[in-house]
Design a protein around this nucleic acid. Structure first.
Lengths: 334, 334
DNA sequence: TTGAAAGCGCTAACAA
DNA sequence: TTGTTAGCGCTTTCAA
């Protein structure tokens, strides 16, 4: 069976021979480690460039017994995850780590995605909004550094980076209360840990402000928002708190088609401050979860375990921030 | 410096020793190769399971000089790419290959993403809608199997899988012409290869049907669609052909807010048949590019080069399919 | 059916 | 500053 590249790729040995030095010296020179003289270094680099040499990660990994690889499990269809990944990539670059992604798809569940990353010998796993039960997370943490991002878990050994979802929803409710709204509806009473936290925050905040806050079941997609909006119209609700921006978009879309004035007749809020929310024509009031801060904290947590030898569990909670835009306004008089 | 996992992971040697066989035998048994007796095989498997053995890919890669890894470069924020990746993953699973993703982000351009994958020793690169110039693609193809997905290129040695964009847009124009529309506008006259193909298809089809078809500049996001829609309202245009679904969504959103009846006053079409288009409340007439067929063809092309030894360039063109939904209707009488 | 031994391409001691 | 020597954990001859 023919090997993929027709001709054999040049090895360190080839470079060393062509430059007239030992493999060890060539290795040091190419990695920029100190030791080699400026002259040797230059010569080795020149030869390597000429030969088109590229280090074999498998071999170097094997020899160093480090891969310097961070594995990220993400929901490939989630725009919020895309945003996190963007920032994780940047943070990983700065920390001198490589990053690979393993997506959760219809045919490839979270467990499978994790296994792919383990097989790649990733040194740490960053799990974005993982579904896995506590026991599984704990077992994973026994063999690899694991950071759960955006979701609480008490699994021992698992670092957690998340934003305070209940606080975030509380900010939204307080904002609406300040605008005079008395009848709120939360869309997205899903079953996940995240949905639960947001629902709890909503109910607590509503109670604290003396408002009526009802909860509509639903998932986390535009579709869910759309059907909730239909169910809602004509009721006494004056403000809709969506579980995330995608749901809010579904709500807004249905309202627009029905000719309902936003925010004149109904205020709408999202959650995530995703790119969607920032679009000029959407201009959605939402909550910034601090995606960048979370991404950086997650990478930092992994690196601390890998390079710093930390073993104690750590939990980083990023403060959410209310972003007021054009979809919220004073409650209508009636 | 402490190694990441506190305790050393069990190696093949450990398993072999515990099972009382040689490493070679253990290796064969665990890979399901034939040779070992059923009894040895069972014993080795049992021991491996008990020890929680997991083969070190780096070592096995090094020894076999194959990685069986497919690398995919994608735009992490593109929902269409997400869809492709989903299908690529499935096809790769079936073909016995692993897949890893390297996303293009703000800080990590396409070239960087490619390099990460090369460093991982991916045997083939599937580039989704690549920006790279022909010369670069050609150079890449000299050292690795390369498949460009969704974009034409004449780069020698690069396989291409795409759908016939001009044909697809032609279907849309014919559909609108059949509904009596005479004044069309294409939104998204970007500079990429894909945008160019769609524009060309639009202009040709409009000419062929004797329609007026004007082209509005713009990119490929909701934002671009929104501003184009604002520019368009009040003109004589009765149908808007968006370059992709995201652009169409931006158009629809602005129209809904302005109270324009779709499709009564204005018909709108998208391109991609993404999940967005299928949402009940969006119900967008669009073009299915055959994402699954493209993904499968791309994996097949890579595998043929890797396992089948094919070296000749191949181009697979998937026929697009018009998907008529609720955003197109008869041209308004005036 | 099984085992011994030789590498894969690299890094890390250690010696010069 | 440079070179020599052992491996890393696996697969693969080849011989038993």
């Amino acid at each position: 069976m023919p090997l993929p590249p027709a001709r054999r790729a040049p090895t360190l040995g080839d470079v060393a021979a062509a430059a007239g030095v030992s493999k060890a010296l060539a290795s040091l020179a190419l990695r920029g480690a100190d030791g080699p003289s400026a002259a040797s270094r230059a010569r080795v680099e020149e030869v390597a460039a000429r030969l088109g040499y590229r280090a074999d990660r498998a071999a170097s990994l094997l020899a160093r017994r480090r891969s310097h690889l961070l594995g990220v499990v993400m929901q490939v269809r989630s725009s919020y995850h895309a945003e996190l990944v963007d920032h994780v990539q940047a943070a990983a670059d700065e920390a001198g780590y490589e990053m690979v992604l393993s997506p959760v798809t219809r045919t490839h569940d979270e467990e499978r995605a994790v296994r792919t990353l383990l097989d790649e010998r990733c040194e740490a796993l960053l799990l974005l909004g993982p579904d896995a039960p506590t026991a599984r997370l704990q077992a994973l943490a026994a063999e690899r550094a694991v950071v759960a991002v955006g979701r609480r878990t008490s699994a021992p050994g698992v670092d957690v980076v998340r934003s305070a979802d209940d606080v975030g929803v509380g900010l939204v409710v307080a904002h609406l209360a300040g605008l005079g709204h008395r009848e709120l509806a939360l869309v997205g009473g899903g079953s996940g840990v995240i949905a639960r936290d947001r629902r709890r925050g909503f109910e607590q905040a509503a109670r604290a402000s003396g408002l009526r806050g009802r909860v509509l079941p639903g998932g986390s997609t535009e579709e869910d928002g759309a059907s909730a909006a239909r169910a809602l119209m004509g009721g006494g609700t004056t403000a809709v708190v969506a579980q995330n921006d995608r749901v809010a978009l579904g709500v807004l879309d249905v309202l627009a088609r029905a000719g309902v004035d936003v925010p004149g007749a109904l205020s709408v809020t999202g959650y995530d401050d995703s790119a969607l929310a920032r679009l000029a024509h959407v201009d959605l009031t939402t909550v910034d979860q601090g995606a960048e801060a979370q991404a950086r904290a997650a990478v930092a947590a992994a690196v601390e375990r890998l390079d710093g030898g930390r073993t104690a569990r750590r939990e980083v909670v990023v403060e959410p921030r209310l972003v007021v835009r054009g979809t919220t306004g004073p409650a209508p008089h009636d």
